[in-house]
Design a protein around this nucleic acid. Structure first.
Lengths: 194, 194
DNA sequence: CGTCTATTTGAATGTACTCAAAAGCGGTGG
DNA sequence: CCACCGCTTTTGAGTACATTCAAATAGACG
């Protein structure tokens, strides 16, 4: 049954009864997006939380000079949303866009709040999800401060081994907080060093 | 009654029954720390989550070169912990230290997990707390990428108006990801501009 | 008043950026 | 099958933002 992967993930943290599973599944919206489609656009209200089943998303911010800054990539088993927009139901600061054809399970704001009431255990699932995201975001801040661009790139390849081939280089540069040109120079330098 | 501020905060998000309040209070440890005392040291397991009643904490990371990097300040109504260490009960990456005399309400790992079972609504309180922290951490990453040091400093003063006077300048520099010397130069430049 | 810590200032340096141009690469159509 | 197009990556020269190191100055506290 197609909802299994998500249910496994959820049941590894909380144990749902059969009734709860049925209710949960009734509120999950399965959606397919194509490469380059947007889930959220800066300025819109983010109305869904998405769990990635397959494919890849980028969450990014466009600054005043028009530069894109990738906040995070979400691949299989990750989730994504403009959380700030979602929880306050105000316009989003971030864009969320598919960089591959992507299959998602989505919860709307209304449904999720309904589910929190009907299945209080679900609070735990999302608490744990958000805790993990916070931990990895804090670690990222540290990496940005204490490592050079080259070290950050090496760390990135270590933490996300598949991403390096999967994602265009200019997006990795953006994630690392450097220009695409400079990442290119780092890579050629790394080749020379071998 | 001394526990009121925290209960107000909690009751603004979830409604506790009187029994639940009593149970909750029985597990809260109120502690006073002096300036410079550590709550958590890099390498130790972080066993408590702390809610700041008064005073100020810094969470920081010491890198391989021995440089300190402030991850966050926690003042009144904020909370702090090495969350990664706390949730996995593994050695902490971060230090948490008082930069003023500080009064805290603390939950131990065991008590908090017990409370999650006895008062499931508490999951919601902490989910909301962690969500807010994640949002502000993501916004910080964006600021670090899209703003110059000077702009980051101005933004910092805007977001944390009191902190600028309250916290030594070299810690603000560390929070902003720049050297203390450079922050000093930014400030003198700002004075000239007026 | 002296000591310790925090901040300021300056000169030299380095890391990463900008801009411009060239090269590579994948797909599409003639 | 090759030519062309759009998009990504590479390369280079010049520049800017921020760092390092050293020394001077300012503040806080006993």
């Amino acid at each position: 049954m197609q909802n299994q992967p998500l249910l496994y993930a959820i049941n590894s943290i909380i144990n749902l009864t059969e009734q709860e599973e049925v209710l949960l599944i009734s509120k999950i919206k399965k959606r397919k997006y194509l490469r380059n489609q947007y889930l959220v656009q800066q300025g819109d209200v983010c109305n869904t939380v998405s769990l990635v089943i397959s494919g890849c998303l980028k969450t990014f911010y466009v600054d005043n000079q028009g530069n894109e800054h990738v906040v995070l990539f979400a691949i299989e088993d990750w989730w994504s949303a403009d959380l700030g927009s979602f929880i306050t139901q105000t316009p989003a600061d971030f864009n969320v866009q598919c960089i591959e054809d992507t299959i998602l399970f989505q919860f709307t704001y209304e449904d999720l709040n309904y589910l929190y009431v009907e299945i209080p255990k679900l609070e735990r699932f999302f608490r744990v999800l958000v805790e993990k995201a916070l931990v990895s975001t804090q670690k990222r801040i540290i990496r940005n401060f204490s490592l050079t661009a080259k070290e950050r790139y090496l760390k990135f390849r270590e933490i996300y081994p598949k991403m390096d081939q999967r994602v265009p280089q200019y997006l990795i540069a953006s994630y690392l907080g450097i220009t695409k040109e400079f990442l290119s120079k780092i890579k050629s330098q790394l080749i020379l060093e071998q």
